[in-house]
Design a protein around this nucleic acid. Structure first.
Lengths: 245, 245
DNA sequence: ATACTATTGTGTGTTTTTTACACATTGAAA
DNA sequence: TTTCAATGTGTAAAAAACACACAATAGTAT
């Protein structure tokens, strides 16, 4: 990354972006039975959440969409605003190279979480970072500022969302097995569920379609593959699901 | 209201407050079987939600607390941040007297809703308004900007909050009857509930205490008075209620 | 005073949902 | 071919939600 761009960003960012306002994204993925988050690493610095700023004539939602696009390469991401963090001390210890810059002022950050299909993501560092990769949710390293707090709040919101959104639709690949879906729920809820009752409940919602295929390759009996029935899914969502976990 | 204060507010507000950021509060109350919101009327203008701005070194939560205090005279209010509104066109039609002022810029607004005990509130207009009063939730007049949208979103959030918070505790006076509590739930949920099953369910939560007194005055059989048992209430809240409406 | 009315207090049986648990099946590995 | 560990399916018990009936009573009308 050349330093001209970076210098421009420090010096003229306030001509492009609203002051004092930032957007932070908690990007969730699911892979190999693990819930994961996408993190960035500052040049020679700590890890942090992917974030950005709001252009003067851009909606905050669009900012989040843009940031997501830049970090993952994906469009059409499932995105939820979950909380705004407004403590003046939330960036305690902030020290960026250019101390005069707009970027060293206090920021109020609007938090979004995103659900993405792990395999489709192509992680891209941003202008301030040189590394971008997935971390298991229970193994994330120390994060900058209050980003751990933001992540925890995102997870809590995701947990609540489980009550009226079949989040598997956004986190899993098109075809998946019942045990995979269950593991996803167990990770988010941080609890164990009975295999048979879980299956009954999921099928009772009536938005899953069982395929003829089975998932082979793993040891032991091969489980069936399922996929979301888009029509039934849309219909159910419109009527408002009541999952109740 | 003298115009010197107002002029100062227009001219020097940006020295006190963060630019582009506002806070709007949806204040809910309950009286005579009606859910109500507290609204302000602009001088010779439309009605709007009570709002304000964030001081440079103040947390956003504290701004909301301060605004609430100024409008209602109350401390220790139950307050929930529920959404941040960031559309650049959200203040369509904005035209305030001083067109050069910081206040005519785009604002991103952080929404809070508050639950208050109706009888304890002493409504106070703010610097921009000359009237402040309660409106029945289903009779609110046309509101400025996107304030109707904000109110609706607050109501939706309150409805969700019903699932893990006994909101009656914050909206009702210390002593209340079971029918009153039921009417509160029915208004928020916009649905009718069976009297007997409702009572069973509320009592099953185990945070209500039935008093010896009855509420007299109304026609017909006098209902018992109840009150929240603070110890059991705190205990239950810590464990996380699962009400499920 | 008395009867009336609308509302409260309480209980019971039915239906539905949730929970707990057992056994046969099967793909891969030993 | 046997073994292992995980999957597929069903059933009974417990709990929660739902529907509904009848007695009691504070004011109101007569």
């Amino acid at each position: 990354m050349d330093s001209k761009l970076l210098k421009d960003f420090y010096n003229r960012g306030d001509q492009i972006f609203l002051p004092h306002i930032s957007v932070d994204c908690v990007i969730f993925g699911f892979h190999e039975d693990q819930l994961k988050v996408l993190l960035l690493k500052w040049r020679d610095g700590p890890w942090c959440l992917p974030g950005g700023f709001v252009k003067h004539d851009e909606s905050v939602d669009d900012s989040a969409i843009r940031i997501l696009q830049e970090r993952t390469g994906l469009d059409n991401i499932y995105l939820q605003q979950f909380h705004t963090f407004g403590d003046p001390k939330r960036e305690k210890g902030k020290k960026l190279p250019d101390t005069k810059s707009w970027i060293n002022k206090r920021f109020i950050s609007i938090g979004y979480y995103a659900l993405v299909e792990f395999s489709k993501v192509n992680p891209q560092p941003d202008i301030l970072s040189n590394e971008c990769r997935w971390w298991d949710i229970d193994k994330v390293p120390a994060l900058i500022y209050d980003h751990k707090l933001i992540m925890d709040k995102a997870l809590e919101s995701l947990r609540l969302d489980l009550n009226d959104h079949p989040v598997g639709y956004n986190l899993l690949p098109e075809k998946f097995t019942m045990p995979e879906l269950q593991r996803l729920y167990e990770t988010i809820l941080d609890d164990e569920l009975d295999r048979r009752n879980f299956q009954k409940r999921m099928l009772a919602i009536g938005i899953l379609e069982r395929l003829k295929e089975r998932k082979t390759g793993g040891a032991h009996k091969a489980p069936f593959l399922y996929r979301f029935d888009k029509k039934k899914y849309a219909r159910a969502l419109k009527q408002g699901l009541k999952l109740g976990w």
